[in-house]
Computed example of a mutant assay.
Amino acid sequence: MNFETTNANLVSNNWLTQSSYITAQALQNRIYLDTLSQRNLYAQMLGDLLLGYLKKFNYDGFAHEIQQRILQINPENLTALIVDANIKMQIAAAEIKRAGNPPEEKLPQYPAAYRAYLSMQQAYARVDDLGYQSMPPEAYQAWLKSFEAAKEKQENKELKEKLQKEIKLLKSLPKPKVIYNKNN
């Protein structure tokens, strides 16, 4: 069963694959919509811990330890791999800046910057090879709006059902007798 925390509903695999950016390759590589073993569930829980830690404290030795532990447990854990690629991107950017921001084709002339650049490229290639595809911000906003529309539709359906029950109840009540007073 899939629980979508964004809209607080149980959702089907079909709905998830149609409404998000999950590729066939990602499904084949079992990085999405696959039952997690206890070991992989533990790794993913550590991944959630890592993301929360990074948001609050940034990348440091403790974050690195968590990331390495995740990859020991599950070498294909997407969270740890994306964090790794993002860290390598920051390192490459710093090295390239230190080298004076040379164009990409001149990076081989700057060994430290070039090594960092290649390391970043390899890390992102590993994530891409698993079939990960990020959702563009505008698509994410549209996705969130679709939840609002679905929620509104559900609320309208529930209201309509409630009104229909009330009408049925009213129809089942005996009809009131109307008494006319001729004196009025």
Rank of each mutant, 00 (worst) to 15 (best):
N14V: 13
L16A: 14
Q18D: 14
Q18P: 10
S20R: 12
Y21C: 10
Y21F: 12
Y21Q: 13
I22H: 09
A24F: 09
A24Q: 14
Q25A: 08
Q25W: 06
Q25F: 04
R30A: 11
Y32V: 13
L33V: 05
L33G: 12
S37M: 09
S37T: 14
S37P: 14
R39C: 09
R39Y: 03
L41D: 05
A43R: 01
Q44K: 12
Q44P: 01
Q44H: 06
M45W: 03
M45F: 09
L46A: 04
L46W: 00
L46M: 13
D48N: 15
D48R: 13
D48W: 03
L50M: 11
L51V: 06
G52I: 07
Y53K: 06
L54D: 03
F57K: 15
N58E: 07
Y59N: 14
Y59R: 14
G61E: 10
F62M: 10
A63P: 07
A63L: 08
H64T: 03
H64M: 10
Q67G: 02
Q68P: 04
Q68T: 12
R69P: 04
I70N: 02
Q72G: 02
I73K: 08
P75C: 08
P75I: 01
E76W: 03
N77S: 04
N77D: 12
N77C: 11
L78T: 03
L78K: 02
A80D: 00
L81F: 00
N86R: 11
I87W: 07
I87F: 08
K88E: 01
Q90K: 11
Q90P: 01
Q90L: 12
I91T: 13
A92R: 05
A92V: 10
A92Q: 06
A94Q: 11
A94F: 13
E95W: 09
I96N: 03
I96L: 07
G100M: 08
P103V: 07
P103N: 08
E104K: 14
E104I: 12
E105G: 10
K106R: 14
L107R: 13
Q109R: 09
Q109F: 13
